[in-house]
């Protein structure tokens, strides 16, 4: 395994608060090991800033193994950086070359206001879940787990949606700031399963409309799928569009309207 080091120029978005005016700051880093993760490289930068008495860059992360969805920023114009199916925390410096300039920006969307530097508020994703991203089963009232067989293919397809880590890269990468991939993944995870059928139409209608309260309109660019660390398929968006149109008819019937 080859031990290489890089000298890098970093252009990092600094913004002191939600209403402050932001700007790019340029930093030089030398002797960055290629084995380091991107976030460890940012840790090194922050150590240097602290040593110089400058306020470190706020960049959020938690599990650093690509599953919690806390981290995420635009790296050289790509959500989560250049590697496919890789969250920011799993990006390693071997993806860069000596002498590179790396531009680091926060995820942007009107409903992802910047909290500070690279940290943004992704609370609207929770609002979408609140609108119906659950199966209403109170604790203790569940039947035996093997009572309803779920075909393996169905379980696998539902899992592909359930794998979403809620990082918001889909919104950040979308030229329209649409939340379609996230919302569709969450809707289809439940809509595909037999357990999710009772609330299927109400869930779809409610979650889609909450999504539209916060996010732009999908124009099927497909950027979201490319940015997604879990490679959620675009098909879920089609399923959701179909379910939404059906829900408009179904719900009308369910409510006994003419």
């Amino acid at each position: 395994m080859s031990e290489e080091t890089l000298n890098l120029t970093l252009k990092v978005w600094r913004q002191e608060g939600p209403n402050a005016k932001g700007r790019f700051e340029t930093y030089q880093l030398s002797d960055i090991s290629t084995h380091m993760s991107f976030l460890e490289m940012m840790d090194v930068l922050n150590e240097q800033l602290i040593a110089k008495g400058e306020v470190p860059v706020e960049i959020e992360s938690d599990c650093r193994e690509g599953i919690c969805g806390t981290c995420g920023c635009m790296i050289n114009g790509r959500a989560h950086g250049p590697e496919k199916a890789t969250a920011t925390c799993q990006l390693h410096m071997r993806s860069f070359s000596d002498g590179d300039t790396i531009v680091v920006e926060p995820f942007l969307a009107s409903s992802f206001p910047i909290i500070k530097d690279l940290a943004v508020d992704r609370a609207p994703l929770d609002r979408i879940i609140e609108a119906g991203g659950y199966i209403s089963i109170s604790t203790g009232s569940a039947p035996d787990a093997n009572l309803i067989p779920v075909p393996k293919d169905t379980a696998d397809a539902a899992f592909d949606g359930a794998a979403c880590i809620g990082c918001g890269a889909c919104v950040a990468a979308c030229p329209n700031s649409a939340g379609q991939l996230f919302t569709s993944a969450k809707i289809q995870h439940l809509n595909l399963l037999p357990q999710g059928q009772a609330e299927r139409w109400a869930r779809t209608e409610s979650m889609v409309e909450t999504m539209e309260d916060y996010f732009g309109s999908c124009t099927n660019h497909g950027e979201c799928h490319e940015a997604c660390p879990k490679e959620i398929p675009l098909d879920f968006i089609a399923y959701t569009n179909r379910d939404y149109m059906k829900s408009k008819r179904k719900n009308r019937k369910l409510q006994g309207q003419a």
């Binding site: 659950y134 199966i135 089963i137 604790t139 203790g140 009232s141 569940a142 039947p143 035996d144 787990a145 093997n146 067989p149 779920v150 075909p151 393996k152 379980a155 696998d156 539902a158 899992f159 359930a162 995870h189 439940l190 399963l193 357990q195 999710g196």
Partner: peptide, 20 residues
């Protein structure tokens, strides 16, 4: 009870081909 609860919530546990 946990398994029953989680399956009812839609946790996509691994299945055999017959659906169990």
């Amino acid at each position: 009870n946990i398994i029953d609860q989680c399956v009812a919530q839609g946790v996509p546990f691994a299945r055999e081909y017959a659906g169990q």
